[in-house]
């Protein structure tokens, strides 16, 4: 404890007028905005998930197939994050659900301020304000998106079979901050050395609370568990 003022910030802090004690997270502004987003999404009556993976692990394809398979049982809306182009949003729009494309113009992750803007844009789309599930597809990148809370309720990290099973060990933050780990493109297991059980055990070692699923958007293997999970988090 400090002798001059009795504070317990740091034992050796001085009362030098040049020194300002701050003790605030650099992410404080993002976290405050994420909290607002979460409240906003809840007011819409929806539950939000944030999908994180390296480029090309199959996030958009999984979403397309999910929208097809889930039919009328969940009303889905999507916010797409990419560095450039509207392409992913166009793929989702073709499935007939409300979607907003956010382009970060070079930034390697979405942040809560961008999602705040995206939520207001989404609400202006036809049926964009009547959702059960909001899916945010983050910029393809397994590192940076893990640091930024967007206001989601659940975080889902994907690794596809061709990427190999060492991703949890190499990029731990994405796995320690997620609730779900999906091993995608399991139809390719015959062609790649990807020991599913070892990858599962390694991810659980990092984060024992992770729900691990394996699935293929192409063959439909493992889809039932994924759809059940989505219905459960939306309580439908």
């Amino acid at each position: 404890m400090c002798d001059s003022c009795g504070c317990d910030i740091t034992p050796d802090h001085s009362h030098d007028p040049k020194i300002v004690e701050v003790h605030q997270s650099l992410l404080a502004a993002n976290t405050a905005m994420a909290k607002k987003n979460r409240a906003h999404i809840e007011k819409m009556g929806a539950v939000a998930i944030n999908m994180i993976s390296s480029p090309g692990s199959g996030k958009t394809t999984l979403l397309e197939k999910t929208i097809e398979a889930i039919g009328d049982s969940l009303r889905i809306g999507v916010i797409e994050g990419d560095i450039e182009t509207e392409r992913d949003a166009e793929r989702i729009r073709a499935k007939g659900v409300p979607v907003i494309q956010l382009t970060t113009g070079g930034a390697c992750h979405l942040d809560a301020a961008q999602i705040h803007k995206g939520l207001h844009l989404l609400e202006k789309e036809p049926d964009g304000d009547k959702l059960d599930l909001l899916v945010i597809e983050n910029v393809g990148n397994l590192v940076c998106p893990a640091t930024f809370d967007l206001g989601e309720h659940h975080r889902v990290v994907l690794v596809s079979v061709p990427e190999g099973p060492d991703k949890p060990a190499k990029y731990p933050k994405a796995f320690t901050s997620s609730q779900v780990f999906i091993i995608s493109k399991t139809d390719l297991l015959p062609y790649f050395d990807f020991p599913v059980e070892e990858a599962r055990a390694e991810a659980l070692q990092l984060n024992p609370k992770l729900l691990v699923m394996d699935l293929s958007a192409t063959s439909g293997q493992g889809f039932e568990q994924w759809l059940d999970y989505l219905k459960e988090i939306c309580r439908k």
């Binding site: 740091t10 802090h13 030098d16 040049k18 020194i19 300002v20 004690e21 701050v22 003790h23 605030q24 997270s25 650099l26 992410l27 640091t147 933050k173 320690t176 901050s177």
Partner: peptide, 12 residues
């Protein structure tokens, strides 16, 4: 262990 904290700043 996941904090990014600005602790103190010395200014004049």
């Amino acid at each position: 262990g996941d904090d990014i904290i600005l602790r103190q700043v010395q200014m004049e």
